[in-house]
């Protein structure tokens, strides 16, 4: 009986590793802002991303369902405030997405012929 043979995996195209939940400008923006800010308030995200409250809520729901952000609701005086923070999985997903974007750009730059070389 032979054991599993280690064969080098064929180099996959970076596009195949993209996560649909994260590979979207608004959701990537939410993850980036939450990562930089440690925790961010709903109003700051809405202003920075130029979204309506309802639209932002939908994106947050997608990220929360995927386990990438945690949402904490509370009050400051009589004013309700919603704070968003990254989970460990969210942190990893953001790092992976940025790495893949860099890979994609590097691949495009090495495969697309420069102007003048195409003729």
């Amino acid at each position: 009986m032979t054991g599993p043979v280690d064969t080098p995996a064929p180099e996959s195209h970076p596009v195949t590793g993209l996560d649909d939940v994260v590979h979207q400008r608004v959701r990537l923006g939410i993850l980036t802002i939450a990562h930089e800010a440690r925790r961010v308030e709903f109003g700051f995200l809405r202003t920075e991303l130029g979204l309506t409250g309802g639209n932002l809520s939908q994106h947050l729901a997608v990220l929360e369902t995927a386990g990438l952000v945690g949402i904490e609701k509370g009050y400051e005086g009589k004013r309700g405030r919603t704070w968003i923070s990254l989970t460990t999985a969210g942190d990893a997903a953001l790092a992976a997405e940025i790495a893949r974007l860099k890979q994609l750009i590097a691949r495009v730059e090495t495969t697309v012929p420069r102007q003048g070389e195409a003729s």
């Binding site: 590979h23 400008r25 923006g29 980036t32 802002i33 991303l49 979204l51 974007l101």
Partner: peptide, 24 residues
């Protein structure tokens, strides 16, 4: 305004530039 209004259309360069802008 909807998310379509701020869509980057999946352009990796623009997505990466956006993350840097947001972080800054």
């Amino acid at each position: 305004m909807t998310s379509d209004a701020v869509s980057a259309g999946g352009d990796p360069r623009r997505l990466l530039a956006d993350t840097r802008t947001f972080a800054r």
